Amino acid sequence: MGDVTHEIPERTPIHLIINGVSRTLDLLPWTTLLDALRDHLALTGTKKGCDHGQCGACTVLVDGRRVNSCLTLAIMKDGAEITTIEGLAKNGALHPLQQAFIDHDAFQCGYCTPGQICSAAGLLAEGHARDADEIRELMSGNLCRCGAYPNIVAAIEQAMGRS
């Protein structure tokens, strides 16, 4: 084998609006949005679950749409508005979904809760769910190992105005 040189790519400046705050990060091109949030911005509410996009623990909102941040390269979202669980509450008041999750005890260990709530916020914004069956179908990408699904559905129904 000849002399092979592997150059490490340069860091790239990425501009994101995270929970309403404009941020510029210098990231390697393979940095996931999840790792940018957790490791570079210390926003640890977003969880690393399976790291394969199968559990939904890493769900955040990107320009208002639900996204698995573990499968999304940060560089792909340059200029985007990102909302994490830390950014849902406003002026010291919990987001209606956060309050509904408390009201319905829609969590046990709490590990999946940030992803569940962010996904539910996206679901509400999409406006496609009309009943419990549709909520279950549209939330199927978010897993709860504790089995709090009935309470999660009830919380989402409450936030939809159907408590």
Rank of each mutant, 00 (worst) to 15 (best):
T24G: 03
W30L: 07
E10T: 15
V4A: 10
P29W: 03
L28V: 04
S22T: 06
R11H: 07
H6V: 14
T24I: 11
N19I: 13
G20T: 06
W30N: 10
D26E: 13
E7G: 10
R23S: 06
G2Y: 13
M1V: 12
G2Q: 14
D3N: 12
R23Q: 15
I18V: 15
R11S: 09
L25P: 00
D26R: 07
L33K: 01
G20A: 04
L28A: 08
I18Y: 00
T32R: 03
S22C: 04
T24Q: 12
T5H: 12
T12W: 01
L27F: 03
T31S: 09
W30D: 12
G2R: 13
G20M: 04
R23M: 11
V4W: 09
E10I: 10
P9I: 02
H6R: 14
P9L: 05
P13F: 00
L25K: 00
V4S: 10
L28D: 07
W30T: 07
R11C: 06
L27I: 06
P13A: 03
L16Y: 03
T5E: 14
L27Y: 00
S22Q: 11
G20R: 01
T5Q: 13
S22E: 14
L25E: 01
H15E: 14
D3L: 08
V4Q: 14
E7N: 13
I14L: 13
P13L: 01
R11I: 05
I17G: 01
D26H: 09
E7D: 14
L16P: 02
L28K: 02
H15S: 10
L16N: 02
I17D: 07
T31Q: 09
L28F: 04
